[in-house]
Amino acid sequence: MENKRIIENKKQFNLKQFFFQWEWMLVAVFIIVNIMNTSLSPYYLSFSGIMDASMTFLDKAFMVLPMVFIIILGDIDISIASITALSSVIMGVAYNMGLPMPLAILLALTVGAVCGFINGTLIVRFKELPAMIVTLSTMTIFRGIAYIILEDQAAGKFPEWYSYLGWGYVGPIPFMLIAFIVFAVLFGLLLHKTTFGRSVYGMGNNITACRYSGIKTDKIKVIVSTLMGVMAAVTALFLVSRTGSARPNIAIGYEMDVIAMVVLGGISTLGGKGRMLGAIISIFIIGLLRYGLGLINVPAQALMIIIGIILIIAVTIPNINLDKLTKKKVAA
């Protein structure tokens, strides 16, 4: 009776499953947004047009990458825009005080890392506090420090070469886009191809089981938060390069845009689900939508409403679908 059962270990390709993926939905929306933009402006649909457009939103895209990790963990970080502000202010002040620019950039990245590390440490140290509350507190603290350092002044007069970061081109492609692609590939690989990424998914689904499986859950959370801080500083580098000066009030509202891009990308706020690719497509959907509506002078407030509506639709569609599908199965 004890005949050995054979268990399959090759994944079968399933055409239906392949097309029943959130990313295809996003691709469709992406195309719709582009069609819309094209009809709004005859100059939009050109390679250089889209390249130029991308430079208006790519600064925050750097923060989407680690935010994917944070939301997969089931946490959230709303202090990121404040980290961007703080590290840019410190970079600007340090440069104006005579620190060479490369070192000032390094300092900015360090400030970002330290802020992220503080967030992560607080989150694992006080487990009864939700990440939302922890980062709500640090959000005001970080930006508060930025204001104390610079009040409502600006720091700037950066060297010529620094503006290349935000404005420069490599051939026909913006330097910023190339930098983003490099980071996106790195983060994508980290999430999908490494034990680190596997642990992050595991923790988002069942952190207790991961702990019992010997995964250093606290360490992983701190690392992810630190990466988030570093990338917030990277955003600062590009943003300041584009605006030309560092102010304590820059990047306000960026956290909401970033979280919106991640959630629209199909990454569940309950944790454990979603892929990097979805978030990357969403960056371009929301970014280009903003750009397109900006072309016809839709006011910023109306833009927020539109993005809010898209978000609600985006997160409810999969739920509605699933519900109906399961009900059909029961009836049949």
């Binding site: 268990i7 034990t195 595991g202 689904n205 089981a209 991961c210 995964i215």
Partner: peptide
Amino acid sequence: KQGLVLQWGIGQNITLATLKDIS
């Protein structure tokens, strides 16, 4: 609650505690 990631496949559950060995 403590042993399994219920949403995951059997395979990923089996290797969860020994990711070092499969990497």
